[in-house]
């Protein structure tokens, strides 16, 4: 049993930067061609594609908002045309919420955050899972959050969105097992990405995330590669009998 994803093609939403980029590169290193989706940052997407290609795999980038079903149809059709069968889907695209109380959160923000995480995940599963059933093995991974365990105050949009996204995962796992598709969840805590740095600046006034290393689990802030490693594990032969599972990668949920 091994840790590779040879000869499989992956689609990683939000794959141009941060955790998504690390996942795309991790899957490429373990043998996969990778399609990434991005919304705005074309330059970052092209840079990620170049890094995938430097690893000897095919990389493609598709612009679109995963919350929009038609955007997803367009991206999925293009990806399948360009790359053929896609047997790994990583629902990673995400946005943070503002950290307001429920009483101060606008209906628009709820819809936006839920849109990306929940409708985006559902859209991509809806469009990619049918062809994935033909693959020898399929994998769908949701990048969730420790928020689903702590459900803390000032986190309503994100708590709602990630909890609903996990519900899709647990449901889909039951539905698609008979088709050889594994569905699992990786839940990061604070990770050193642009989003993570913005979060600690906004919530704790921390300008340099290095200041947080000392007080962090295992004396370091979690890196995008830590999340990528868990994703690749789930997609590998070592996890062939693992589905419907959730791993929090946050140095311990305490």
């Amino acid at each position: 049993m091994t840790n590779n994803t040879d000869n499989r093609t992956a689609f990683v939403s939000g794959g141009s930067r941060g955790i998504g980029k690390a996942i795309a590169l991790g899957l490429a290193k373990s043998g996969s061609d990778v399609a990434i989706n991005y919304t705005r940052d074309k330059e970052a997407a092209e840079e990620t594609i170049a890094e995938i290609q430097a690893l000897g795999k095919i990389g493609k980038a598709y612009q679109g908002n995963v919350a929009d079903f038609e955007d997803c149809q367009r991206m999925v059709n293009s990806a399948l045309t360009d790359l053929g069968e896609i047997s790994i889907l990583v629902n990673n695209a995400g946005v943070a919420s503002r950290g307001s109380l429920i009483t101060d959160t606008s209906p628009e923000e709820i819809r936006k955050v839920v849109g990306v995480h929940v409708f985006g995940t559902h859209n991509l599963c809806h469009l990619l899972v049918p062809q994935m059933r033909e693959a020898e093995r399929g994998d769908v991974i949701m990048i969730s959050s420790v928020a689903t365990e702590s459900l803390s105050g000032r986190g309503a949009p994100y708590n709602m969105a990630k909890s609903a996204q996990e519900a899709i995962a647990f449901t889909l796992a039951k539905e698609e097992r008979v088709h050889g598709i594994r569905v699992n969840i990786v839940g990061p805590g604070l990770v050193e990405t642009d989003m993570g740095k913005r979060l600690v600046k906004a919530t704790r006034g921390v300008e340099d995330i290095r200041e947080l290393d000392e007080g962090s689990p295992f004396a370091r802030v979690c890196q995008p590669e830590d999340i990528a490693d868990a994703v690749v594990f789930f997609c590998s032969e070592d996890a062939a009998y693992v589905t419907g599972q959730r791993l929090y990668v946050n140095g311990g949920s305490f």
Partner: peptide, 26 residues
């Protein structure tokens, strides 16, 4: 299948993972 999860958990690839539970039951 069990050994695969154990090996992962003991490796550098899981250096930010603790207090977790993986069910290996399909």
């Amino acid at each position: 299948d069990i050994a695969g999860s154990v090996a992962f958990l003991c490796s550098e690839r899981a250096s930010y993972i603790t207090n977790q539970r993986i069910t290996v039951a399909g």
